[in-house]
Write a protein that binds this DNA or RNA. Structure first.
Length: 418
RNA sequence: GUGGGCGUAGCUCAGCUGGUAGAGCACUCGGUUGUGGUCCGAGAUGUCGCGGGUUCGAGCCCCGUCGCUCACCCCA
């Protein structure tokens, strides 16, 4: 018996026709970034393990139990990237961009990896499109980043999502809050596991789904009330900018982010029709990260949008994702002689930059026309013995069903103009 | 790592209290001479996830195993 292979557990992969929808979503996310002046940063999918440990945070769940880590042949510890920001920082530093004109604005797109138990919208290999703006600590750039994320969703026609924002303040604000929060939690009635969780990151308890915990956390001290004057002013400025852009948002005083590097403005896009994994994108400021990784002491802000989840969101809203490119022409040959000619014409049109496909083999005309129909081509042409002699072909408009006669030499021009 | 659900044609699934398998979609061909989208007809396809057990007999019952899936956790 032959072994049957299947994709590794929990990976997201897309075969036609769904891959076309995936492509539309990804391209839409990318174009929003490009529109806002961000430039491509193409990165490796694996990095030195230490980069993520230091960048994302030694105690985070991502680093402690969700990374794909292995040793390469030179004995180096390598990790498949679980997120994008650390790699971007590394590359910015490595290429000296942090010493050039600021802000550095880059976008990236690709696969990320986390060794988690798969579930709806959560995969071990998943796709993100993200941007990072480095070297400018101005509310203006915060608002730009959030607006760009929002635009990338709106471009697709998404409606049933909400934007939640908060500010995690500067490190002093967080320290003061942490002291009080720890004190508060010490007085709660919690089980052992929850207590350990709170020791690693007490903010986590705000996110706990159990009602017993929620109830106890109702009067917990909120970080937002501990913000310094400066942080508050910054956060207020971001809010007024968003309002002036006409972007709706909610302030979530209990927002929790899983990565340690976040500071100040933090945000999340949540889709209302998805399952438990409803976060379709998120991001925030990470003002100490660059320095932490050995670069200049620059602030930064960025986001990561989940392509897989956004595709699911589009489906849940029944949004029609029109395929990007359509065929300009679908060509059909009748008879041996005509085949050569059609192959030649098709090749020539492709060289000229047109998008063309054809029927192969000896298909009945009816069946070939069905293929033409399904291909979504704008025009079809049938070339047989008659046309070979006449040098002119009937080109059929697949929408109207009407045909018109075009000479072979003017075919390219005809397709280009219609 | 912890729970629940499910594994029958390429896809979505049906199969009553056990008697060796079906539907829709998709696919291929056709409805006479070289033109699709509707309609009609015909056809192909399954070791019923795998292994064992009970039984005269198992897709249906029992055990195991693998896989998928949803949720906890976590997050895109």
């Amino acid at each position: 018996m032959v072994m049957k292979f299947q994709a590794p557990k929990g990976v997201s992969e897309y075969a036609p026709p769904r891959s076309l929808h995936f492509e539309v979503v990804r391209e839409s996310l990318i174009s929003a970034a490009v529109q806002a002046g961000y430039l491509l940063m193409e990165l490796p999918v694996f990095e030195d393990t230490e980069l993520f440990a230091r960048g994302v945070g030694e105690t985070t769940d991502v680093v402690t139990k969700e990374m794909y880590t292995f040793e390469d042949r030179g004995g180096r510890s390598i990790t498949l990237r679980p997120e994008g920001t650390a790699g971007v920082m590394r590359a910015v530093i490595e290429h000296g961009l942090d010493r050039g004109q600021l802000p550095v604005k880059v976008w990236y797109s690709g696969a990320f990896f986390r060794a988690e138990r798969p579930q709806a919208g959560r995969y071990r290999q998943f796709y993100q499109v993200g941007i990072e703006a480095i070297g400018l600590n101005d509310p203006e750039i915060d608002a730009e980043v959030i607006a760009t994320a929002d635009r990338s969703l709106k471009k697709l026609g998404l409606k049933d999502y909400r934007l939640e924002i908060t500010s995690l303040g500067d490190s002093q604000s967080r320290k003061a809050h942490r002291v009080d929060l720890d004190k508060f939690i010490a007085g709660l009635d919690l089980d052992e596991a929850t207590r350990t969780k709170a020791q690693v990151n007490p903010l986590r308890l705000f996110d706990d789904k159990r009602e017993s915990v929620q109830k106890q956390m109702e009067n917990a001290p909120l970080l937002l009330n501990y913000l310094s004057e400066e942080s508050t002013a910054h956060f207020n400025a971001v809010q007024s900018l968003l309002q002036s852009f006409g972007i709706d948002f909610l302030i979530n005083k209990r927002m929790v982010r899983g990565l340690d590097y976040y500071t100040g403005t933090t945000f999340e896009f949540i889709h209302e029709k998805l399952g438990a994994q409803s976060g379709i994108g998120g991001g925030g400021r990470y003002d100490g990260l660059m320095k932490q990784l050995g670069g200049a002491d620059l602030s930064g802000i960025g986001y990561g949008m989940g392509v897989d989840r956004i595709l699911l969101a589009c489906q849940s809203e029944e949004i029609e994702l029109a395929p990007l490119g359509k065929l300009d022409l679908f060509a059909i040959a009748l008879g041996e002689e005509a085949k050569l000619k059609v192959a030649q014409i098709v090749n020539q049109l492709r060289n000229a930059g047109l998008t063309v496909d054809m029927a192969y083999g000896d298909r009945a005309l009816k069946s070939a026309m069905k293929m033409a129909d399904k291909s979504g081509a704008k025009f079809s042409l049938v070339l047989g013995a008659d046309e070979l002699q006449m040098e002119s072909i009937a080109v059929k408009n697949m929408d109207s069903g009407e045909s018109q006669s075009v000479t072979i030499s003017s075919l390219e021009e005809f397709l280009r103009d219609s």
